[in-house]
Each structure stands twice: as structure tokens, then as C-alpha cells.
Amino acid sequence: MLPLLKFLFRRFMWMILTVWIVYTIAFFLSRAVEGDPFAGERAMSAEVKRYKMERYGYDKPLVSQYARSLWLMTTQLDLHESRKLNEIPVTQLIAEGFPVSASLGIFALVFALALGTVAGVISAVYRYSFLDFSFMTAATLGIAVPNFVLASIAIMLFVFWIPIFPAGGWGTLRQLVLPALCLGAPFAAYIARLTRTGMMEVLNQDYIRTAYAKGLGDRRVVLRHALRGAILPVVSYLGPATAGILTGSLVLERIFFIPGMGSHFIEAALQRDFPVALGMVMVYTMLLFVANAIVDLSYVVIDPRVRLE
């Protein structure tokens, strides 16, 4: 248990350090470009601007602004307010957006895993068959098509020609399916390829032959013995896949009108709503750390040779 705790503690400290560095760099960079945080369509009088500057603490020296904001963040979990959206607290945006993005991400990931491993295993077992060829072509296509193209084609197909899903919005399971499929597709494709290669390698190994020799059936050998060895590359891919799914959802949330963190982040970054963008980046950073830590942990579980370092 001790090594586990030590591992988690160390990861946690690295995460804090990373978030702090990201925050610091982003803070100073954003202040460097933040021409006029209160630019509106109409020119503002200097006086009025001063009131606003004071309200947001912009009149203080940069370093003290930084110290104050770091203090607020660490002690009160206060990530400031949106600069462009009626001063809505960033924490509220995260609280609203996170469950949405998380639901979408979980679905996409589960879909990618399920489809990817099944297709990969089938491809490997019936290698060089027509089935294998078509799966692998589809998988490469999945990697080669940008997901916004995939999404618009999917909308045409499954919303208009075969009307089974709604065009957008958020709230019901039906509204979730199409974006999750589009989001998971490239990752399903990649996982399929990984599983296939891993599987083919494992199937050539002695212990598989032994298993067959013992008279075990195909299904049992493949699912109980081979898959376990072949799944390792897939597990290590889950870290980057999580990152990819998070980034990918930026586009899909926009196309499918989903009020998740991705749409908050994109809008905020493009409109230079720096507090919001910064808050979202920190959440994403933490998510990635957690995902990577889980991947490393599961590595230990799956492969007895690997130890926590």
C-alpha cells in the first residue's frame, strides 16, 4: 500500500507544480496581450475605464495582481469571473460544463474501447481475410478524416436521411449518441489497430500454443489468455486518448450545440476571455494528469513485471 500512496503523492505534487507553472505562464502571457480588457463597440471615457480597472484590480502592479489571484485560487478556489459574460464565476462555468463534457467523454471512450478492441480482435483472429481488410481500411479512414467532417456527414446521414437522432442540443440520451460516436470514432480506429497488432504478436507466442494444446477452445484462448497480453498497448494509449477526446470535443461541442467545457474554452480563448480560458486549461491539465496516473496504475495491475516507481 505504501508504494501506492507514495506514487499517488508524487503524482499529485507534480500535478500541483505543473498547474502552477501553466497558470503562471498563462497569467503573464495573457496580461501581455490583453490590449484593453474592457473594449466595447463604443469608446469608453477614461473615467469609466478607471472604475472598471479598479473593480478588477487592474490598477495594481502586475506582480501583486498575480499574488492576489494565486492566493484567491489556492485558498478559496476562486478562479475569478468571466470578463465577457456578466462576471459569471469561472467555477460556476466549470461546475456546469464539466458534467456535460465528462458524460460525452466517457461515452466516447467506452464506445472507442468497445468497438476498437472487438474489431481489433476479430481482425487479428481472422487475419488477412476480407473482414480484416475492411475493418482495417475503416480504421485507417477513421484516423484520416477530421472529426468535423465526420460530424457533418453523420448529421446528414442520421439526422436527415435516416432520422433517428436529433440535430443538436443536450439533455437526453438520444442527443448524446451522435456526438459521442463522432468523438470516439478516430480513437476506436486507433485502438482497433493497436489491438490487432498486439493480438497478432501474442497469438504467435508459446503460451498461446500451450493453451491450444491443452485443448482450450478458440474463444477461451483469445479472450482469457491472448487479450490480456494484447491489451497493454491499448491501456498505455488511454492516456493520450483521453487528452485527444478532451481536445476533440471542442469541435463537436460546437457543432452539436453542447454546453460543455469545450465550448466554454473555445469561445473564451477566441474572445480573449482569459480568466475563463485559463480556468478551463487548468481543469484540462488536471484531468490529463489523473488520466495518466490511472493508466500507469492499471499498467501495474495488468502486467506483474511492472512496478510503481
Binding site: I155, F160, A167, G168, G169, R254, I255, F256, F257, E267
Partner: peptide, 18 residues
């Protein structure tokens, strides 16, 4: 009142009656 920024998405949702 939906905060629908993409015209294409808005059109799609209109056409499907949402």
C-alpha cells in the same frame, strides 16, 4: 432562448423541429 452561435446547427435544429 438558445445561445446558438452556429448558423448551420441552428438551421439543422430548426429543420428537425427542435
Amino acid at each position: 432562448a438558445l445561445a446558438l452561435k452556429s448558423d448551420t446547427t441552428a438551421l439543422n435544429m430548426y429543420l428537425t423541429g427542435q
